[in-house]
Amino acid sequence: MRRYGPAVLLALVGAAILRVSAFSELYLRYVQPGLRPWLVVSGTALVLLALAAGVTARAHHGHEHAHGPRVAWLLTLPALALLLFPPPALGSYSAEREAAQRAARGVGTFPALPAGDPLDLTLGEFGSRAVYDSGRSLRGRTIRLTGFVTRDADGTWYVTRLLVSCCAADASTAKAEVRGADAPAVDTWVTVTGTWHPEGALGSDAAWPPVVDAASVRPVPQPDNPYEKR
């Protein structure tokens, strides 16, 4: 059976990639939606290579003996784990690892917001407008933010989202401090409805993270795509 080791390993990795990309939305935990076709092509190619490797190994059976340590079969364990137990999306631990090192990126006016309240905003857009918008476009608006719960040791809690450009490896954090409501459990997904609470001078460290006075906090399911695009 050792001669089939490479084929099995290729098949497991290919099947794992196809499972998260072709047959589910799990790939959104790791990469942007636009990369799905490339994942499907990669997974399919690996499965086809596995079939070719298996045919080649069978054709050579009886002509030569397979060599190599049996421990090489242990390489199939990570691939099998990926197939059966895909890693979860990044959460509070990843968000809290990023230091709040934010310099002023240029204070200025932002485009007008759509009419109507409550206004659904991403955490990234809310943070940008709260910290850098000299037009104070958030003032007097009821906003709605969706993300997962993170919390400081002193009990301060945040609605948080991870921003990605390409994949989970380049994730950065967007969050808003929530006041006026009890904190749900860490990593719970919630929708917070409330109003912006100005803090600090525009573009300053004191303005980050932005603050929202909550009128309501509602638990929601984790979205298929847990990340925001940076």
Rank of each mutant, 00 (worst) to 15 (best):
G14Y: 08
V149Q: 00
E96N: 15
H197G: 07
F23N: 02
G124T: 05
T173G: 09
T56D: 13
P198Y: 13
L80R: 00
T195H: 08
G62I: 05
Y27Q: 11
L162T: 00
W189D: 07
T56K: 11
A103V: 01
G106H: 13
I17Q: 14
R129G: 02
Q222W: 09
Q101T: 06
A115T: 00
L74M: 07
A59K: 11
P223E: 11
A130T: 01
R29V: 07
T173V: 13
G108A: 14
G155L: 05
L39M: 06
P111K: 03
L26K: 13
C167Y: 08
Q32G: 11
L163W: 15
A130L: 08
S137M: 11
G108W: 15
A100I: 08
Y93N: 10
L35Q: 09
A53R: 04
A185Y: 04
V159G: 05
A50H: 01
R179T: 06
P88W: 02
L84Y: 14
L26R: 10
A115D: 03
L51N: 07
G43I: 00
A89P: 12
T142W: 12
I143P: 03
P221I: 02
T76P: 11
A16K: 03
A214D: 01
G54T: 01
L145Q: 04
G54A: 13
S165K: 09
R29F: 13
C167H: 11
A185F: 10
T146P: 05
H61Y: 15
L123I: 00
V131Q: 15
A206Q: 06
A59Y: 09
P226Q: 11
A185K: 13
R141E: 05
S165Q: 14
L145D: 01
A81L: 12
A176N: 09
A53W: 07
A206V: 08
T109C: 08
V178F: 15
A201I: 00
V217R: 00
L46P: 01
V31R: 05
A185G: 15
V192F: 02
P86E: 09
H67G: 12
G43A: 08
G194P: 02
S204M: 06
T142H: 12
F85K: 01
A168V: 03
T191M: 09
A181Y: 04
T150F: 03
E96G: 12
A171N: 05
A181M: 09
S92W: 02
L113P: 00
T193S: 11
P6W: 14
R179A: 06
P223F: 09
Q32N: 12
G106A: 08
T146M: 06
D117Q: 12
A201Y: 02
L80C: 11
A215C: 04
F126V: 02
A79F: 02
A181E: 10
G14M: 12
I143S: 04
T195R: 07
A15F: 10
G180A: 09
G106N: 04
W208H: 08
G106E: 09
H60I: 04
G54S: 14
R144G: 02
L48K: 12
H60W: 14
A174R: 01
G127Q: 06
A176T: 05
A168Y: 03
G91L: 08
L48S: 05
P198W: 13
P210M: 12
L26T: 04
